[in-house]
Amino acid sequence: MTALLWIDHFLASIGRSVLALLASIGRIAVFAALAVSHLARLPFYAREFGQQLLQIGYFSLPVVGLTALFTGGALALQIYSGGARFNAEAVVPSVVAIAMVRELGPVLGGLMVAGRVSSSIAAELGTMRVTEQIDALTTLSTNPMKYLVVPRVLAATLAMPILAFIGDVIGIMGGFLVGTQRLQFNAATYINNTWDFLEFEDIFSGLVKAAVFGFIVALMGCYHGYHSGRGAQGVGRATTNAVVSASVLILASNYLLTELFFSS
């Protein structure tokens, strides 16, 4: 009897968790649809959009650049030592370039921006929620979705591909520096190999991924901040949830997008 009761409770708790998860997914989907629908309707707050572009795009450059530089360098070392097992050291330039452009540039850039931007958006909007600034916007005949959410989501979606592209270039440069300074590659050969093996599809898929990641990063920050609970604890929880959910969604959507672009 006790065992049956335990199984009953266990199954009920699983059911509750699944229902809560589905409800959360539904709420996020509705929020995303609302944000996208407001993108297409006036008014558009250009000043706020410009500020966000600067905040999300320009100020994320150092963190994305440094991440890409060290990743490119480490990747060159790993491919060289791994390739040496079957005499394939020469693939270092091409594999570094393809890996950076297709995967590591957008994914690591997305994760770094998630840590920097999602948390900051969630904390800002959460504080605005707690201090009634979001209510104040409504009473001043300004739709918070248009004024707060649309500029952030659009700015992140547009800024992220540019950040990823810059990250790709810096990452390849990191590989080049390690390749030429540590692994004795000829500089001209390294550059030629990089160019020869890169295809348009590699770059395009990476930029599309980055745009999707940018959308996810801003959307999660806005969603969790907008629905923040009361007090410092509520804002803290919103910030954590924003970063965690953005990171998980970036990795999950990366797999789906990779399937979409390269499964054939």
Binding site: E132, Q133, D135, A136, T138, T139, S141
Partner: peptide, 14 residues
């Protein structure tokens, strides 16, 4: 909403 003005408890200044 244009008919209303509101003073919030904490000011709610931006």
């Amino acid at each position: 909403l244009a008919q209303f003005g509101m003073l919030f408890q904490g000011g709610a200044l931006f």
